[in-house]
Write a protein that binds this DNA or RNA. Structure first.
Lengths: 232, 232, 232, 232
DNA sequence: GATGAATGAGGCTTCATTCAT
DNA sequence: AATGAATGAAGCCTCATTCAT
C-alpha cells in the first residue's frame, strides 16, 4: 500500500521543511490566532510529523515569532519606499495608501497576526530588532516626500509622518480587519471587486485631500517631479 | 470569623452575579481572545465558583456572545446618532469621527472583541439580529447629515455612507488596535495625551477635507470649521 | 452495564481522594523513581481521573514532595524516640538499630524515595522544613542515651551521635536498598526470614560492640534501667 | 573557518568514540537515573551525533547495561582481594571496609547506578554473568581472612561472610548514597575532609569490634587495633 | 442559586529510535 | 563510521464542562 500522504520522509531537506512548516503555521495562526492555533493542525497541513515542528522551531511560541517576522517582512516588501518616492509627492502618497490597502487585502494573515500580537502588547515585536528596523527606510522615504510636497507648495506643512502613516494604514486596515463583521452588519460582501476599487480610491483621495487642505495653489505651480496631471 | 473574601454566596442576587461575571468575561476575552480566555480566570476575577459561570451562561461560547453584544451596545451608545445630527453636517461628521476614536480609545475591549470576532468570520454577529439592528439608526442619521451637507453645498455628492463610515472608523481603530506594535516600532507611547489630541483632530480634519474636496464654495460661503450655525 | 471500575465519582470526598492518590503515588514512585513514574499509572491505580491528580496536587513534582514528606513521617514515626529512651542505653540503641532496619525492610518505599531524592541533591528535602524538623527529637533522644551510657561506664565517650546514626542506619539501609543486586550476586533471597533475623541481630551487636569497644567494665555496673541481662 | 567544536567526525576511531560515549552515559545515568537520563544529553556531552550512540550501543537500555558493567568492574578493581589478604585478618578487614567506603565516596556513579538497578530488581545484573563472576574472588579472599582470624583466636567464629560484606559495605554506602539528604537534615556538609576521615575510621573500628566481640584473648594477647604485627 | 470536586478530551512537548545521506 | 532530519508514541498538563451536594 502506498503512503496515503506524501511526507517529507526521505527529503532530508531541512530548509524546505522549515519553509513548509512556517507557511502552514502562518495560515493556521491567521485563521485561529495564537491561542486557538493547533500545532497538530500545522503539522498536518505541512504534511510533517508534529515532532518536526519542535525540532525546527522549538516551541509554538517561537514559531509564532518566526511567523510574525515573516509577515512583517512581507508587509514591508510590499511598501516599496524607493518606488513610491520616485512617483513624486502626490502620486507617491496616493500609491502608498493604495498599496498598503492592497497588502492588507491580499495578505489577511498580516492583519490577523498584527491583531493578535497587539493582544500580547507587542511583546514579541518589541523583542525583535529585526522587525523594528524594517520601518526605518519607509519612514525616511515618506518624510522626504512630505518635504518635497511642502517645498512645491502642494502640501500643508503641519503634518507629522507618524500620524500620516497611521491614518493612511488605518484606512485600509479597518476595511480588511473587520471584513466579516462589517459585511454582516451591512449585509453585503465588502470584498466585491467594485466596492474594493471604490474604496481604494477613496483612501487615496482622503489622504491627499488632507495634505492639500487649506493650501493656496501657487501660480506657476510646478512640483519638482511626479506632476502627472494639472488636476493635482 | 467572617469570610476572608466576600463572595456572592448567599446573596441570591443572580442579576448582580451575572453582571459581575459578564464584566470579568469581557476583560478576560479582551486580554486573551476567545481561545486564550480561561473560564477559570473569569470565575476567579468575578469571585465566583466556576460552576456558576456555566449555571448562568451555559457555555464559554455563549458567554462570548453575551460579551460581544455588550460591547456592541457600548459602541453604539457612544455614537449618539441624534446628538450628532443636531450638530449639523460638518460638525456632526467631525464629532462622529472624534467620538468613534474616543470609544475605541476608552474601550479597548471593543477593539479586541471585534478583532477576535472577525477571526471567526463574524459567525456570532451574523447570528445576532440584535447587534445588526444597532447600526440602522446610526447609518440613517449619517445619511441625513450627508444629504444636508450636499444640499448646503458643503459636501461633494459622490460619497457613500458605508465607505465613509468605514474610513472614519478605520482612522480611529487602527491607532488603538495597533497601539502596542506601533508604539514598539516608533519607540514611544502612542497614548500620550498630546499625541492623542493631535491625532483626534487629524481624523476629523481628514474626513471633512475629503467630504469638501473639490466642492466649489457658494457665495454666502461660511467657513465650515467650527461654525455651529443653524445653516449647517 | 455496571461501571467496570469503581471511581470516586460521587464521592466528593476530597480528603479521601487525596489520600488514595498519595498512596498510589508513593507506590509508583517507589517502583519507578521520579522520572520513571507515570502520572497516568498513579491515576489508574488510584481509580481516579488523571486530571484529579493535578487538581489536588498541581504537578507531578508537587506530588513527589508530598510523597517524600509522607515517607519521612513514616520513617520518623517508626523510630520512637521516647520508647527507645525508655529502654536504657544498651537496649535502647539495640532497639533503634533493629527498628530502623525493620522500617527499611517493611517500607521499601522509604529507601527508594530517599535514593531518588539524593539524585536531586535533596532539593526537596532542603526546601521542606517540616522534614528537617522531624529529626530533632530523635537526635536529642539518642544523645541522652549516649550520655547515660557513658555515665554508667557502658559506652566509650568518643562517639558522635550523627556518625552513630549514619552507621546504624547504613547497616540496615544497604541490606534493603540493594536487596535485588545482592540477591543476584549471592544467588539467594536476602529476604528469607532466617537471614533477616540473623542480620537484624548482627546490626544490633555491631553497633553496641562498637560503643563498648575498649570500655573497662566497672564493678557495681548497674545501668539505671533497661538492664536485661548480665551479658550487657 | 575551522569547526568551532572538535567533533569525532572523521577520526574513524570507533573505540575512542565508544569510550567517550560510555563515559558520558555513566555521568548522565548517575545524575538522572535510567529513566531520567536523555540520550540527547549523553550525545551532546560526548560531542557526538545522537545517531552514533545507537550505532554503537543499539539502545538506551543496552547502554545502561554497559554502564552497569563498567561501574561494577570499577568497584571490584577497587577492592583488591589479594592486597587485602596480604594485610592479615584485622588489618585486611579494616582496609576492606575503608577502601569500600573510599570507592563509594570517589565514585558516586557506583552508588547511583546500583540504586537504580535495584529499582529494576537487578534484572540487568542477573542477566550479566560477567558482573556476578566479579564477586567470587573477593568473597573467597574474605573467607580466608575470616578463617585465619578465627584460627588465630582474633575473631569470633559465628560470622557469615555474606552478612559481614553487607554490613561493611552498608556502613560506607549509606554515608555516600544519602550524602545530600543527610547534609540537609544535619545542616552541614557530610563531605568535609575531617568528617570523612572520622567516619572512615569509625567504619573500620565498628567492623573489627564486632568480629572481636566476646572473643577471649589468648595468652600472648596482642591488642588488635592497628597492630600490623606478623602474628595477624 | 451556588460550590468545588471530578472528568475526559485534547494540547504542547519530549524523546527513543529510525533512516537517508 | 557518522550525521542530523524525521518520526510516532507517549508524557505532563490544561481546560471546558458535568455533577453531587
Amino acid at each position: 500500500m502506498p503512503p496515503r500522504q506524501r511526507r517529507l520522509r526521505g527529503t532530508r531537506d531541512s530548509a524546505t521543511a522549515q519553509a513548509v512548516i512556517l507557511d502552514a503555521a502562518i495560515r493556521e495562526f491567521a485563521a485561529k490566532g495564537l491561542a486557538g492555533a493547533r500545532v497538530d493542525a500545522i503539522a498536518r497541513a505541512a504534511r510533517v510529523a508534529k515532532g518536526l515542528v519542535f525540532h525546527h522551531y522549538g516551541s509554538k511560541q517561537a514559531l509564532w515569532v518566526a511567523a510574525l517576522e515573516h509577515i512583517y517582512a512581507t508587509l514591508r516588501s510590499g511598501q516599496d519606499a524607493a518606488a513610491i518616492e520616485a512617483l513624486g509627492p502626490v502620486e507617491g502618497i496616493r500609491e502608498l495608501a493604495r498599496s498598503t490597502f492592497r497588502l492588507f487585502r491580499d495578505h489577511p494573515e498580516i492583519v490577523a497576526l498584527m491583531n493578535e500580537e497587539n493582544l500580547h502588547r507587542a511583546s514579541n515585536v518589541r523583542a525583535s530588532p529585526r522587525i523594528r528596523a524594517l520601518y526605518n527606510p519607509l519612514f525616511a522615504g515618506m518624510q522626504r516626500l512630505l518635504d518635497a510636497g511642502r517645498r512645491a507648495g502642494l502640501f500643508r506643512d503641519d503634518v507629522d509622518v507618524t500620524a500620516l502613516y497611521i491614518a493612511l494604514s488605518g484606512l485600509g486596515y479597518f476595511y480588511c480587519a473587520n471584513r466579516w463583521t462589517l459585511s454582516a452588519v451591512f449585509a453585503g460582501d465588502l470584498f466585491r471587486e467594485d466596492r474594493i476599487a471604490t474604496y481604494e480610491s477613496l483612501i487615496a483621495d482622503m489622504v491627499v485631500a488632507h495634505l492639500q487642505h487649506g493650501v493656496k495653489p501657487r501660480r506657476p505651480r510646478r512640483s519638482a517631479r511626479g506632476t502627472r496631471s494639472i488636476a493635482l
